[in-house]
């Protein structure tokens, strides 16, 4: 007789034979798939938000539209009056540290390239521009600021691009919140599935567990067997889900870069972002193991 024959040891609990194994693996794959895509969304929104916030910081321009009047002198005077009102308003806003209207020369330099030499801008109804410096820690609500500014000085308007960006930031923030909720839900649903299948399995193998108990097995002995099994399912499911998620992430990314304006192209995933995404199978392994382990400990306490 071969001495080595009985070295191989079978698990006391035949968990590999549980029909719920395949089901769980599929659930976990799908969960990791959704999780990876949503997470890549959250991470790229983060990069995007960072870039946008950077460009929104620091400074701001306010435009005063020229007043139309047949009397040119009167029109200029009125425009300048509106500018004064705008300046007065801006100087009293928290977070604004310096308000400088551009003088005629500066305006001319700005516009010259567009109009060519030899044009006297004082004869043209061109908008006046105010340069606004923001405090580094300024937390301004641009939409609100724009509204108040237009009340204080009807001809004044906030730089369009920044206003638009700040609305986009709010939108992205909201999107991020929803995505985070999705992430939590995915974790909850997966843990729930593991919880119920583990409980089912405990009922199924009750006889064996009772025998193990009589032999002096502690709850952790059983819990560890479940933990190991679920860790395996969690990891394999995670790998499978990731395998499908990565091409999907690239596909969505390539669609995004085709959007005009280059706004979304700032949404690239960094090295550490990919690191997080690639570690998802470890994450799903841990969640599966932890959930199963504690389900067993809690259930056995009530069951036996």
């Amino acid at each position: 007789m071969l001495k080595t024959q009985y070295i191989s040891r079978k698990q006391e609990l035949p968990l590999n034979g549980d029909s719920t194994g395949l089901f769980l693996q599929i659930i976990i794959s799908i969960a990791v798939f959704i999780f990876a895509i949503t997470l890549s969304g959250v991470l790229s929104i983060n990069t995007m938000l960072y870039n946008w916030n950077q460009s929104i910081l620091g400074s701001l321009t306010v435009q005063i539209m020229p007043v139309n009047d047949i009397n040119k002198e009167k029109a200029t005077a009125q425009t300048l009056a509106y500018q004064e009102k705008a300046i007065e308003f801006l100087q009293n806003v928290d977070g604004i540290i310096k308000v400088t209207p551009l003088n005629d020369n500066q305006l001319k330099n700005l516009i010259q390239p567009w109009l060519g030499d030899g044009v006297n801008i004082s004869n043209l109804p061109i908008p006046r521009i105010i340069d606004v410096k923001l405090a580094p820690d300024a937390d301004l609500n641009f939409v609100e600021l724009a509204q108040k500014l237009s009340i204080a000085s009807p001809q004044a308007s906030l730089d369009n691009h920044k206003l638009w960006l700040s609305k986009l930031i709010d939108f992205a923030d909201g999107l991020k919140l929803i995505a985070m909720t999705v992430l939590l839900l995915v974790i909850a649903i997966t843990s729930g599935a593991i919880f119920y299948t583990t409980r089912m399995s405990l009922g199924l193998h009750r006889n064996i567990i009772e025998i193990l108990h009589t032999m002096g097995a502690k709850d952790t002995y059983v819990a560890q067997q479940y933990g190991k099994r679920m860790a395996f399912l969690g990891f394999c499911g995670g790998i499978l889900g990731l395998l499908f998620a990565i091409p999907a992430i690239f596909f969505i990314g390539s669609l995004a870069t085709q959007i005009e304006g280059g706004i979304i192209s700032e949404a690239s995933l960094g090295f550490s972002d990919w690191g997080i995404i690639f570690s998802l199978p470890l994450f799903s392994m841990f969640i599966a193991m932890y959930t199963a382990y504690h389900t067993v400990k809690r259930t056995l306490k009530k069951m036996l």
Partner: peptide, 27 residues
């Protein structure tokens, strides 16, 4: 857990044996 430790000092032969059929006699 203490009960489990006490059970380790007790050997039991059940009326209906309660052997685990998917394991070998050795296991």
């Amino acid at each position: 857990d203490e009960l489990a430790s006490l059970r380790r000092r007790i050997g039991v032969v059940f009326q209906d044996f309660r052997l685990i059929n998917h394991l070998s006699a050795f296991d």
